[in-house]
Simulated assay, not measured.
Amino acid sequence: MAKPRWADGPWSLIETPSKTKDMSQHGAIFIANEMACTHNCIIRGMNSIYLQAEYVQKPEDIADFLIFVRSWASWVSDHHILEEGTMFPGFEEVARTPGLLGDNVEQHHAFQPQLKTLLAYSTDTKPDKYVAETIRKTIEEMAPSFHQHLSDEINSLLSLQSYNGQALLKVYKRAVAEATKQDKHAVPPLVLGLRDVTYEGGSRWPALPPLSEWIVHYVFGRRYSGAWRFLPCDTWGKPRALAFGPKSEEGTTV
C-alpha cells in the first residue's frame, strides 16, 4: 500500500540546530532552534493546505478549510511583522550593527504579495465560490522564496553567536511575550497541531506550563474546532493522517 501523504512534503522540513549543537552553549543557538521549530510548523501548515485544498468539496468543509487557511496566513503574517518590528531591531541593537539582518527582512518582500493573497482569499471567499486551484497556485508561486527564507533565517540567527547571548535572549523573550497576545482561539490550537513531537527522534517544543494543552484543546480550540480537522497533528503534537486527500481501496489517505 502507498505511504500515507503527510505534512513533511512537498516542501521539506528544516533540520533543527539541537540535532548537532548544544543549545546551552549560547543564546543564539537556543533562539535559532526555537525559530527552526516555528518554521517547521509554518512549513507543515503550508504543506497541509496545499495537499488538502483540492479534496475539500462540501460547503461546510470548505468553510472550515478557509478558516484554517486564514488562521495560518494571519499567524505567519503576524510572525514576520513581529520579526521586523521587535525581534530583528532588538538583535541589531545588541550587535550594535544596524541592518545586520536586513537581508532577512528583504526576503519577506519576495513572498509577501502571495501571503496577502492567501489571507484575503481565505477571508473573503464564500464556500460556493471556492476554487482550490487559486490556493494551490498561490502557494506554488510563494513557496520557493518562502521556503528559502525560512531556511536562511536559521543560519542568520546562528551567526549571532559572536554577540551577547543573554542580551539576545532578553530580546527574544520580549518578542515571544508579544506573540502571546495573538488570538488565543486561533493561534494556540493552530501551532500545537502543526508541531510534531516525534520529529528528529522526539521534541517537546514549545515548553508549556502544566495543563496548557488541555486548556487549548477544550477551551480555546472550541470556537474554530472544525478548522483543526485539517491539522497534521493533534493538540498533543502526535502525527495523524491528513483528513482530506485521495483514498486508497482501504480508505487510507495516501
Results as ranks from 00 to 15, higher is better:
Thr97Met: 13
Leu82Asn: 12
Leu100Lys: 14
Ile67Lys: 09
Glu133Asp: 00
Tyr55Gln: 06
Gln52Arg: 07
Glu60Lys: 12
Gly99Arg: 15
Met46Phe: 11
Leu101Glu: 08
Leu118Gly: 01
Pro89Asp: 05
Pro144Ser: 01
Lys129Phe: 05
Ala53Ile: 06
Thr86Pro: 00
Thr97Val: 11
Met142Asn: 05
Gln148Ala: 10
His147Lys: 07
Thr86Ser: 07
Gln57Ala: 13
Phe65Pro: 13
Cys41His: 02
Ser71Phe: 00
Lys116Ser: 04
Asn47Ile: 07
Asp152Cys: 09
Pro98Arg: 08
Leu51Met: 11
Arg44Asn: 00
Asp78Tyr: 12
Leu100Pro: 09
Pro127Val: 13
Ala73Gly: 08
Ala143Trp: 02
Leu119Asp: 04
Leu100Met: 15
Gln107Lys: 11
Tyr130Glu: 10
Ser145Phe: 00
Thr125His: 07
Tyr130Asp: 10
Thr86His: 07
Asp61Phe: 03
Leu66Val: 09
Ala120Phe: 01
Pro59Arg: 09
Asp61Ala: 11
Tyr121His: 06
Ala95Ser: 10
Met87Gln: 09
Glu84Tyr: 06
Gln57Ile: 13
Glu133Trp: 00
Ile62Tyr: 02
Cys41Met: 07
Ala132Val: 00
Glu84Val: 02
Leu118Asn: 01
His108Asn: 10
Ala63Gly: 12
Gln112Ser: 11
Lys126Ala: 15
Val76Tyr: 11
His80Gln: 15
Ser145Lys: 04
Thr134His: 04
Val76Leu: 15
Val105Met: 13
Tyr55Ile: 05
Pro98Thr: 06
Arg136Asn: 01
Gly99Pro: 15
Arg44Cys: 00
Gln107Val: 05
Val76Thr: 14
His147Pro: 02
Ile49Met: 02
